[in-house]
Design a protein around this nucleic acid. Sequence first.
DNA 1: ACCTGAGTTGTTCCCGGTAACATTTATGTG
DNA 2: CACATAAATGTTACCGGGAACAACTCAGGT
Lengths: 340, 340
Amino acid sequence: MANTSADKPNIRQVARLAGVSHMTVSRVLNEYPHIKEATRRRVLEVIEELDYRPNMAARALATQKSQRIGVIVESAVEFGPTSTLRALEATARGTGYAVSSIALEDGHRISPQEAVDNLTTQGVDALCVIAPRSSSIAALRKISINIPVLVVKPDRDPSFLTVSLDQKEGTTLAVDHLVSLGHRDILHLAGPLDWLDARARERAFHARAKSWGVRERPIVVGDWSADFAYDFAKGIKELPDYTAVFVANDDMAVGLIHGLHERGFSVPGDLSVVGFDDVPLAAHVLPPLTTVRQNFRALGVAIVDLLRAAIEEREIPRVTKIPAELLVRSSTAAPRGEDS
Amino acid sequence: MANTSADKPNIRQVARLAGVSHMTVSRVLNEYPHIKEATRRRVLEVIEELDYRPNMAARALATQKSQRIGVIVESAVEFGPTSTLRALEATARGTGYAVSSIALEDGHRISPQEAVDNLTTQGVDALCVIAPRSSSIAALRKISINIPVLVVKPDRDPSFLTVSLDQKEGTTLAVDHLVSLGHRDILHLAGPLDWLDARARERAFHARAKSWGVRERPIVVGDWSADFAYDFAKGIKELPDYTAVFVANDDMAVGLIHGLHERGFSVPGDLSVVGFDDVPLAAHVLPPLTTVRQNFRALGVAIVDLLRAAIEEREIPRVTKIPAELLVRSSTAAPRGEDS
DNA sequence: ACCTGAGTTGTTCCCGGTAACATTTATGTG
DNA sequence: CACATAAATGTTACCGGGAACAACTCAGGT
């Protein structure tokens, strides 16, 4: 089957054994249309026999395209960004693209500028920013990049391609669920508002709460971490006048419940809690968490579709809305003194 | 600062502007020792002015080295593998290497062979396998690869470089903790035994339990998922004769506690539970989980060190043992009728 | 002043693909 | 049957770096 010599065969060796020029081999590899069937088969046979693989570096050098997408992800520890990245990678691989990713704040401090430099030096054909903070986007605007850039964010942007999951729909589902249970006073525990996703959820929360005539109250801004929410809950002195909390992610929801529990408040008895993300443990924490699930797989597909179109200078496809889903579990119930 | 023309400058343009040959520029870039200081400065100035970056594809083609490490990770959803991967990426980037990773089973079914093919086609200089199953390793053995391969596994292996976190130490800490609380009948809820980490924990559990004279009982083999452990707990009819459960990962521990709770058994009142991994939520689930934390960052550093040494054909460094840490929280207590 | 060796820089070719253009070989067609 | 045209294949140059080797410079020893 394979050749015994250790070094990799190149396209000219294949050509010689097949009795053709190396260009014919190249054409077979790239599915050029006008190749005689017999020739193609012979070439493919030799390729098979030699276990030949084209050298991507050489191809990248010649074509000025690396078949590689660069991804900047704000935090690779959060569930959402990680899931998106995984989905993106799998989709990209399926269409012949490789992915290089950089996490912005994972201990090793890296500036957006450095991340872009690192990625462009790798010669990526396009750039994608997942779960961005507004400061990162501002930094990005100042960097001149001559490849397509896609930012995963809710609103259109003149500088970038954009897609995003519909934060508004997910948030609306959560608020409506609480309202339908009878809650009229809901606290929002938000993510850091310089994260676009946190901001979008906060906006959507206000909009929907207002349209239901729910009482306006200041939101609490957290940092996505369970620790923060736990500390916040521990600081609550007596049973608050809100009866439900819409939390911007599951981690904070779990921390909140933990803190409330230590303070002697029960969920959902005293307070209902809704999370966001549906992390793997959400169904099994106590009480199982009512939360919003997003379709990261679909997002990954959409990102790759858009980026490929941009790279290959095809028409940019329109992305159909990616629906969110509310998972009702046990952390929500009607407020005290209500019948459902 | 930067040039206004859109196309990237190459090494010869830099050379021309600096009044030297392109090789001199190349030497400056690669820190060749015998360059006159004045020349070096001039070249660096031009590089700066033009914002020149070397083309990695061209370099890879010329040197036959891609400065890229390929990683195969069995499951990118588990906390441990993901953390290891992140740490590896950050470390690699810090030393001038890039990383390409492939997740084996994340929905998109990919065989080890395909993963290796994909990575070698990208021209990686070395391969690393994280959180492997024995079947993957068996498959790997059959594939002839002529680059260094490192497998994250406990025992030495003639075919591969190896490192691993010390599963034995972590397990021992957990068992000793339970024993010191007074437990003499401990169930082990293991991960799938074709995962080397699961197997190592199971072996270490048996060894340590035996040395304490703890009663031998068959282990339960799970699939890492909270769902499995939940179902298992729901199937328990009456309070079992074991008083503690050592669970091979936190997800299963949480699922187990959930199921036990629904069956009316309390943790740690009726049963103590120890997990493994210290996932971000472990401190905040109810009850907060006693678990074993591993140092994934150190593992990432060790992997990159070994791989770089192998790639650059230096002597392979000896890796110092990476210690584990037991975090005692509220899911463990003395068994009923004991004083601590 | 001449030779030697280390320091410094330049010339040429190659890495393994693809683009562009040239050439040869079918396939029709009047 | 000659000629236009399309199909199939070959030739050459080039992508942007680095390796190998050549050449030139300069200080120190005789």
